[in-house]
């Protein structure tokens, strides 16, 4: 089974039951981008649900339409999401998203991969 894919925005990998999404450095996500990102993820998942570790340290901007899309459609076939962030920008974007968009599945932000993985193991 193919467990790795990539597009202009991110690389995707499935390992040990966790879906890893790593955004490229400096990406700015608009609605078209958000749709592409979710589509790519869904075709990699082949109908399986996973907890996801979303490394968004490279993200510089997420437009409103994209935030709304992620909150609504972005959670399909995901059990939980751990954001991996760092100060200042990605941290503030994730906090804003969690406060304003209230995603439907358990979602939390972490500063280290270890903490993020620990959070996700309860959803394996």
């Amino acid at each position: 089974m193919l467990d790795y894919t990539e597009n202009n925005y991110a690389t995707y990998k499935i390992a040990e039951g966790i879906l890893y999404i790593r955004y490229h450095i400096g990406v700015s996500i608009d609605l078209a981008g958000a749709v592409k990102i979710v589509e790519e993820r869904l075709s990699l998942q082949k109908g399986q649900s996973y907890p996801a570790l979303c490394d968004m340290r490279g993200v510089r901007e997420v437009k409103k339409a994209a935030r709304d899309y992620f909150a609504l459609e972005g959670s399909i076939l995901l059990k939980a999401v751990a954001f991996l962030v760092e100060p200042s920008i990605s941290e503030v974007i994730s906090r804003f998203y969690l406060l304003a968009n209230k995603p439907a599945i358990p979602t939390q932000a972490f500063q280290t991969p270890e903490e993020a993985e620990k959070f996700l193991t309860q959803y394996l």
Binding site: R67, S88, I93, F96
Partner: peptide, 17 residues
């Protein structure tokens, strides 16, 4: 937006949002 990743840029980002 500038390419920086500092506190001012975080402020810019959050005020834009």
């Amino acid at each position: 937006r500038s390419g920086k990743n500092d506190n001012v840029e975080a402020l810019v980002s959050v005020i834009n949002m």
